[in-house]
Design a protein around this nucleic acid. Structure first.
Lengths: 238, 238
DNA sequence: GTCAACCAAATTGTTGACAATATATCCGTC
DNA sequence: GACGGATATATTGTCAACAATTTGGTTGAC
């Protein structure tokens, strides 16, 4: 019995030291999924590219099974397409799908604005309103799209957080990760940033007044406007 | 072309062991995922039950890896919950999540009604309107809930099909598979079927007139009403 | 009798080897 | 020289053994 204890203590498991001050895993990035997701969303891998399991397994230093499991999730999220026995390719948005997405996004973003307005005190939107009245306006004038996109991301995040509806948040995220690259190309269309800025300000003003219905309608109008812009310039962005 | 097929058929290696002839994987290729999904949705397995990989692998006659892969998908759809090293359990809806779902469902079903109205000729809704004016009314009077649910399923399916938006359809499906069991319990609440019937008829009448905006608003009102009923009777259905 | 540590069984997680399939290359025939 | 057909290679799909973790019960000390 004592021997058993000894055996236990001396078992060949390597230092894992979860409780200890050591870093828990060896250098390799544990989250294959997250990395792949970001690469695809940011289009660091071009749509249509083939994803080879062996290649990725070697790069990440993990067995192929891990890659496979990550593929399974990415397929569910429609970020990649898998054809049996032929592998996985990065999904590409076709035009009709984009318009379908925008129809859905319209009502979801509208709901998000309404819930956010209902859930928190109107004054809490003052800082965002200031941001969109001052600095963001300057960003647009200077054609500083990175700053504009950062502000926009802030806007979305604040609304989703205030809306406090995980189901909604998840759906918006799943939409957003598919269209992120597209949005960047819409923003730089001539005049779009100006219009978007004005529309966002209108939404925020309604929220500042605590008018949830108006906020919903204005956010929906904003989405419809974006969709119209897209329709007009579709040949340039897709 | 035909030659290609011949080449395929004459490939030498077919050492599958079964060797019985032409049938490749006849019996043992059950769609594990589909079966598990239905069992969970229909609550043939109770929420909170533990799902053992080995058990299922043996039952389906497939290696554990398959079960594992199915689990991965079910987890993504939030039909099960997996805790590392502790296994998978059937997800259970808690009350707050249900209300979150209904807020989202309100706007999505509204969108679905609007798109359906816009996409097809108003006359094409006549048969559904007749169904909800005649037979469905009888079903409610006779407390024939199965018939009522079948008609309701028909209604939803027709609208989704006419809306012709795969993104929307998928989101509604993912919501529906989580709440299917709940809906059956709402329907049998005192008076709910009558109210639902009236509201659905109102939606269909708007669609019959080609009034997409009204159809959207009425469908949303219908969802809000269902949510209110749920709030009122929450202690009895959850 | 209670508490704690400890062992044993069951269960999940991981890995590499092997089989099936698709793609690319080469060769003979017309 | 081009086309069809067969082999070679690369890639994906399948699987069963192995490792690690949790759990329930048992033993022993106080």
């Amino acid at each position: 019995m004592a021997q058993k204890v000894v055996a236990m203590a001396s078992r060949p498991s390597r230092a894992r030291g979860t409780g200890g001050g050591r870093n828990r895993r060896r250098t390799a990035a544990p989250n294959v999924l997250q990395v792949l997701r970001e690469r695809i969303v940011r289009q660091e891998i071009a749509p249509g590219s083939k994803l080879r399991e062996n290649e990725l397994a070697q790069e990440f230093g993990v067995p192929r099974t891990r890659i496979r499991e990550a593929f399974s999730v990415l397929e569910q999220r429609e970020l990649i397409e898998r054809i049996p026995n032929r592998g996985a390719v990065v999904a590409r948005l076709d035009l009709s799908q984009v318009f379908h997405i925008y129809d859905v996004r319209e009502v979801l973003e509208g709901l998000c604005a309404r819930l956010a307005t209902q859930n928190v005190a109107p004054e809490s939107w003052q800082d965002l309103l200031d941001l969109f009245s001052g600095p963001m306006k300057k960003s647009v004038e200077k054609n500083d799209f990175d700053a504009f996109l950062a502000g926009y991301a802030n806007f979305r995040q604040r609304l989703a957080s205030a809306a406090d509806n995980p189901v909604l948040t998840q759906m918006l995220d799943s939409i957003y990760e598919k269209t992120q690259a597209l949005i960047r190309r819409i923003i730089i269309l001539p005049g779009r940033a100006e219009i978007g800025l004005r529309e966002h300000r209108a939404v925020l003003e309604a929220m500042r007044k605590g008018d949830a219905e108006a906020a919903e309608q204005l956010r929906r109008a904003n989405m419809r406007s974006a969709k119209e812009y897209l329709r007009q310039f579709q040949k340039y962005v897709l």
